[in-house]
């Protein structure tokens, strides 16, 4: 047997992305670790047409929360104390990616044995990124409208369907 490292580097089907864990999407339909932020979209509890666009930056732990119409979130109010939307976003990210991956991405150092992400965040304020994140969410939703295909797509041999964690 070759060492694990060598085998990984010389494998066409080497796994790169850990499968995401199933979670309920009703409250937080979209979450991603991208562009140096944990970012996503939180559905409003009161208005089905409205969503909140929330993000936490990696490293600085800068918070941002605005509506999709670019109004600031009243709960966050430009401060450093997380609103309910940001808390829901963080919970969804932990459910989807696991606490380890989220805290590593945000560069959060959790106290020993803590399973609370917020205990490792020293929050600051961050510029409003709602427009970018929201358009990312719309691109995400647009995938559901791309028609199916019977094209042979030979490159999919490099992408086996996610195995079960049994």
């Amino acid at each position: 047997m070759t060492s694990e490292g060598v085998a990984y580097e010389r494998r066409s089907a080497a796994p790169v992305i850990a499968p995401v864990r199933p979670r309920k999407l009703a409250k937080v339909p979209f979450v991603e670790l991208a562009e140096g932020r944990l970012q996503g979209v939180v559905s409003s509890g009161s208005d089905v047409e409205r969503v909140y666009v929330s993000s936490i930056t990696s490293g600085d732990h800068g918070l941002s929360c605005n509506t999709n119409n670019n109004r600031p979130c009243g709960g966050l109010g430009g401060g450093t104390y997380a609103c309910n939307h940001l808390r829901a976003l963080a919970d969804a990210a932990v459910a989807q990616y696991g606490l380890d991956r989220v805290s590593r991405y945000l560069k959060a150092t959790l106290p020993d044995d803590s399973d609370n992400l917020w205990a490792g965040l020293h929050t600051t304020t961050a510029p409003n990124r709602a427009a970018e994140v929201f358009s990312g969410f719309l691109r995400h939703l647009a995938y559901l409208e791309v028609p199916p295909t019977s094209d042979p797509l030979p490159e999919l041999h490099w992408f086996p369907a996610a195995g079960a964690v049994r």
Binding site: V20, Q96, H140, P148, S150, P152, L153, L156, A164
Partner: peptide, 25 residues
């Protein structure tokens, strides 16, 4: 021979529920 059908989806749709995306077939 082979015969394949593919659907666009997002990362939160995975596992057995991904078959739902192939409703056209």
């Amino acid at each position: 021979v082979r015969a394949g059908v593919a659907a666009a989806k997002v990362d939160t749709i995975s596992g057995p529920s991904a078959w739902r995306m192939l409703a056209a077939f």
